[in-house]
Computed example of a mutant assay.
Amino acid sequence: MTEAVPSRGLDAQGHIAREGSLARVRHEFQPVVAAARERIRDLFGPRLHSAYVNGSIPRGTARVGRSDVDLLVALREEPTEADRAAARALIEGLDDAFPQIDGGGTLLYSRTRLLSDLETHDLGFFVACLCTPLLGEDLAERLPRYRPDSLLARETNGDLARLLPRWRDRVASADDSEAALRPLVRFMSRHLVRTAFTLVLPRWNGWTSDLHEMADAFAAYYPTRAEQLRAAAVLGYGPRGDRAILSSYLQDLGPWLADEYARVHGVKAPRPEDA
């Protein structure tokens, strides 16, 4: 029997299919992934439960010299500040060693947090559908299957209103250099496009992590904001260190999107760090 081809990122039962695989990693990035695996094992030793790579590298869409490396590490206990510092140093070391990547990030959580009821439709979804296993037991085996519904939309990106004040503080404290502003433009562009996509997720009835496809999906339902989202998608892949872009996000697109999200899907359940 021929295996069914996923439609819009869904399997034959309408669940969101896991999007990445180590088999899809382009040969230029295979040394990066191998080094990440070894360095994570060395850093965390027996405290490590599992580790994952996510983003464009396991999707096979990474671009040499422009794509970052994104990792998630699950520990057997709650991470400490020393663990977070080690995770930052891990990325800095990879960035220095491999010119084919442009920075990156490591998410660090306990196994308990990732499997908690509170995180089932946020971090749990992230692990099960958007992360590719590198080390240890795959937590996806302990998580449910996911559909592109309003609950998933609310719990993944329904916290934009809470984030905007923090973003304003970050922008206000940044200097006007390209080095300071470019990462902020990339981060906020990607976050806003992904939030706009999950706003229409149940109606579009599918999943993609491609920013341009996300913007196009959103544009079908909010044509008056289509140009803004498509421009943000471009900046998510090729950011410019321009404070005017950040101001437009914080004064216009971000507040509008936060209000519309709350109206359509409600507000994400608070997390401990929101207290």
Rank of each mutant, 00 (worst) to 15 (best):
Y109M: 01
Y109A: 04
Y109I: 00
S110V: 03
R111E: 05
R113E: 06
L114N: 00
L115M: 10
L118F: 01
E119H: 14
D122E: 07
D122I: 00
L123W: 15
L123N: 03
L123H: 07
G124N: 02
F125D: 06
F126W: 14
C129H: 01
C131Q: 05
T132M: 06
T132G: 00
P133F: 03
L134W: 05
L134G: 03
G136Y: 02
G136T: 10
D138T: 09
D138P: 06
A140M: 00
R142D: 09
L143G: 00
L143V: 13
L143C: 00
P144E: 04
P144K: 08
R145K: 02
Y146R: 01
Y146Q: 05
R147A: 15
D149A: 09
L151E: 10
L152M: 07
A153G: 08
E155W: 14
T156K: 10
N157I: 11
N157M: 15
R162Y: 04
R162L: 04
L164S: 02
P165G: 07
P165N: 13
R166E: 13
R168C: 06
R168A: 13
R168D: 00
D169T: 11
V171P: 09
V171G: 10
V171K: 12
A172D: 14
S173Q: 12
A174M: 14
D176I: 11
S177R: 13
S177E: 08
A179Y: 07
A179H: 00
A180T: 06
L184C: 07
L184G: 02
R186H: 14
M188W: 15
R190W: 12
R190H: 07
H191P: 01
L192I: 14
L192Q: 06
V193L: 02
T195M: 10
T195L: 03
T198C: 11
L199K: 01
L201C: 03
L201E: 03
R203C: 03
W204T: 03
N205S: 11
N205T: 13
N205A: 08
G206C: 09
G206S: 11
S209E: 15
S209K: 13
E213Q: 09
E213M: 04
M214I: 00
A215R: 06
D216Q: 14
D216A: 15
D216F: 15
F218A: 14
F218T: 04
A219N: 04
A219C: 04
A219E: 01
A219H: 05
A220T: 02
Y221A: 09
R225Y: 12
E227P: 00
L229I: 06
L229F: 15
A231V: 09
V234A: 13
V234G: 11
Y237H: 08
Y237L: 05
Y237R: 14
G238M: 00
P239G: 05
R240W: 05
G241T: 06
G241R: 02
D242G: 08
R243S: 10
R243H: 03
I245P: 01
L246K: 01
S247N: 11
S247I: 08
L250T: 06
